[in-house]
Amino acid sequence: MAELQVSVVSADQEIWTGTASMVVARTTEGDIGILPGHEPLLAILSAGEVRITESAGAAAIKANAEDGFLSVEHDTVTIVARNAELVRG
């Protein structure tokens, strides 16, 4: 199965990058789930968590991305926010 290349980027550094099987984010319109093969998308995130399901295992990574945006193209997901941080859980 194809995988998503995910990177979480904040203003001063790249916070996390890796492959994932699914990304769930909360946009201003509502929650959105992204699986491999998603159409190109640019969405504004509302304050909230982004859940990244790593493909290697069942481990889920949570990232706090406030007032950022999310872009999807060719199975590459970029989550960009001024103050993003990882919440390991």
């Binding site: 190109p40 998308l41 193209e73």
Partner: peptide, 17 residues
């Protein structure tokens, strides 16, 4: 650049970006 789908509207996305 691919043809993006914008959420919400392109104008709003630009406003925020």
């Amino acid at each position: 650049l691919p043809l993006y789908e914008f959420e919400p509207e392109a104008g709003d996305v630009l406003d925020a970006l």
